[in-house]
Design a protein around this nucleic acid. Structure first.
Lengths: 198, 198
DNA sequence: ACCTTTGCTTAACAGTGTTAGATTATTTAA
DNA sequence: TTAAATAATCTAACACTGTTAAGCAAAGGT
């Protein structure tokens, strides 16, 4: 009778081992290098037994994704508990979100579909910096001379870029926002930042 | 003599064919399905000849990325030319950026490392919506009752999320922003949006 | 006519996710 | 204790992947 439970506990343990081995590999070599056989090696089994615990490789990623969201929500609860003012709470929640993204970088990547492929971006041809330079210059042009420091321009530049790119990626990975809502967010944000510069 | 040029023109043509076949495949089946053999099939060659034109698969992606940035910068130049007021120009540039992202979705994905893997996100367990629901609720709490419509909450919610997630992905894909600049952008943006709600 | 270069293909290697079949070990029943 | 049944695990294979080496066949130059 009790041996049944022990066996179930063992099964649960190897299931966890599979997940732990997976993030280990990803932390060492990146998502691209994660393979069923490498996972099997790490848990000292052969590849096919993984399919007794997960339907396929995607199911492993899905479970890691799920655990990531659970972790994140716990960190947010903690952030709430450390303040009483709702505005402060909200700020702390977003900062917790930010910290989580870098503390659990690999989880964040799979949760929100952030690739890190383009490694040779820096030393590539200057074409790839063209659009961003154009934006930077135009922002510089708008900012009144008395405020026009490099740091200030950088701040505005990244604020613009973040909100636009963020909204785009959210739209591309999940498809739930309506067109009008997108336009609302976009115009509001852009207009808001432009006004804040004057 | 002239035949040399014809041959060079032909080589250039197949090079372009490789790139065109690649985006064709990606548009039909997604980045994940792009393979050297499929490209070869489409241009009616065998896989190894692709290596006469590109060092490897990554080189193809890099070239598509480069072309994407060139395309984007041209659209931005056009956006500039359609206005005279610098603020209007900047707004038009960001809107061009936005339009480009969806008109050339596949290019944008490879340019900025946006994955679309997580297909079964919607019908997955509710855990993945937990953190976002917490944020939504807290935002609702802060907004004064007279403004508190669902549309308004949604707008603020997505503005927050966009700017934070956008800044995170920018940091993860290119690593050039400093910590202080990140904190500056983050605190400014969050504070700004919170103030705009009151 | 021969030699060299070019264009292209076939074959192969090592790796990937995944499945079927065989093998071994463990539990259950008589 | 032995026999049957069940569970746990592995080997082998399939159809792919990116990439490279060897070979063939046609074209160009001398």
């Amino acid at each position: 009778m009790a041996s049944k439970e022990r066996i179930l506990r063992l099964k649960d343990e190897t299931r966890n081992n599979i997940l732990a081995a997976s993030i280990d590999i990803v932390k060492e070599e990146g998502w691209q290098a994660l393979s069923m056989r490498k996972i099997a090696d790490k848990i000292e089994y052969t590849a096919p037994i993984i399919y007794e615990y997960f339907a396929n490789k995607d199911a492993i990623l899905n479970e890691l994704t799920r655990q990531g969201f659970v972790k994140l929500s716990k960190l947010m609860e903690q952030a709430i508990s450390e303040h009483t003012d709702p505005a402060k709470q909200l700020e702390a929640m977003w900062l917790a979100y930010w910290d989580f993204a870098f503390a659990e970088k690999e989880l964040y990547q799979v949760m929100y579909g952030v690739e890190v492929n383009c490694c040779a971006m820096q030393n590539m041809c200057p074409d790839i910096q063209l659009p961003m330079n154009m934006l930077w210059d135009k922002i510089e042009e708008i900012i009144p001379v008395e405020k026009r420091t490099e740091k200030y321009i950088d701040t505005k530049y990244y604020t613009f870029w973040s909100v636009v790119h963020g909204l785009i990626s959210i739209n591309m990975t999940r498809k739930l926002t309506s067109d009008e809502l997108n336009q609302q967010v976009l115009k509001d944000a852009i207009g808001g930042i432009i006004n804040s510069m004057k």
